[in-house]
Amino acid sequence: MSLDLPPLSGQKLGIIGLGHMGHPMAKRLKNAGAQVYIHSRNRSRLEELEQSGMIYCSSAAEMAEKVDTGTLLVCVSDTSALEEVVHGDYGILTGLQPGALVIDMGTSQVMNTRSIAALIQQKGACYLDAPVSGGVVGAEEGTLSIMVGGTEEGFLRAGPLFDVLGKNISHIGPSGTGQITKAANQMIVAMTIDAVAEALVLAQAAGADPGKVQKALRGGFADSRILELHGKRMIDRTFQPGATATIQLKDVHQALELADHSGVTLPGLSKNAELWENMLAQGLGQYDQSGFICMIENLQSIQENKQGDE
């Protein structure tokens, strides 16, 4: 009688970037049976992962060599970091083996994504852009939404890995379309956080309990995961970041750059970007996205002070 093997048993997987998202993703992949190689600019953060049996690599190039024809996941913070990881002096391209699969699971600019995909393919390897949504909780629980751009062959090959990390997994189309979808996601997130924050500030100022208002709105047309999770954080005043306001603003700017490249005007997002910029100007950039309500409250205080001085 044969024993069932873990879903990723025998697979070689490398993960570059072990921050808020990469760390729990690495643990899930290791628990699913993969032989996991890890690399981060700060090795001291990797002690727990190394103790669990993951193998440290001193560079992305070394990881690419050791993973061989396996899979490399990149979970870095922005497009410039992705560019450095891929074709820096000790980047993936230096050690990349034909037949390997490279997956960018961060949020990167579409135009750069397509250029990087072409470089990877010239080396005889496959590239997917597969950004995620669902935050740290989703990464820990394996319930991420994963939006994938690239070939059908690459998507099918990555299927068992994606099944370990997520629940809502969609192949959108060719290279770049995963990142296009993530840009749309981040637009909706940024603007909905604004709407929820302003609604709760209005409720408080007009004499209603914001907590009761938030609960009452659940299940109606105004309901959303933003109202559920970020609205609750706003009420509880818990602003320890899953994703920071700084990262959210980066994503908003990236969406606006894509809109400009595509010849599209987005007036609502342009105004929303000004508000996120204001949040950073107030020194709140390392707050969770839900800390946006603090910026709105600060604007209200400034307005009240101006009226008091008149």
Rank of each mutant, 00 (worst) to 15 (best):
V164E: 03
A184P: 02
F155G: 01
T177R: 13
M187D: 01
A184R: 00
G173S: 09
G159N: 09
Q186R: 07
M191C: 11
K167V: 04
P174W: 10
I180W: 10
N185P: 03
K182M: 08
N168G: 00
Q186K: 04
A158G: 02
K167E: 12
G178H: 11
V189F: 01
A184L: 15
H171C: 07
P160A: 10
F162M: 12
M187K: 01
V189M: 05
I180H: 13
G159F: 07
A184H: 07
N185A: 10
K167P: 04
I180R: 13
T177M: 14
G166L: 09
F155D: 00
N168A: 14
S175H: 15
G173A: 10
E153I: 11
N168D: 13
V164T: 09
R157E: 07
T181K: 09
M187N: 05
H171S: 05
G178Q: 07
Q186M: 02
P160L: 12
D163R: 15
S175K: 06
M191E: 11
Q186W: 02
V189R: 02
A190E: 06
A190V: 10
A184G: 15
G178W: 10
L156K: 14
M191F: 06
M191G: 06
K182D: 03
A183I: 12
R157D: 06
G178F: 08
M191A: 12
A183H: 05
G178E: 11
D163H: 13
S170W: 12
K167R: 15
P160C: 12
M187V: 13
A184S: 13
F162S: 01
I188P: 00
F162V: 00
K167I: 06
G159T: 14
M187S: 09
I180S: 11
T177A: 08
F155P: 00
T177Q: 15
H171V: 10
G178P: 07
G166W: 07
K182E: 06
T181D: 01
I180E: 09
G166A: 07
G178V: 14
G159S: 15
A183F: 00
I180N: 08
P174T: 01
L156H: 07
A183V: 11
Q179Y: 06
I172Y: 11
H171E: 05
A190I: 02
D163M: 05
T181Y: 09
I188T: 05
A183L: 14
L161V: 11
I172L: 15
V164N: 04
V189Q: 00
R157P: 04
M191H: 06
K182C: 08
T177G: 00
N185V: 12
G154A: 06
L165D: 02
Q186C: 05
G159L: 14
A190L: 07
M191K: 02
L165H: 01
A190D: 07
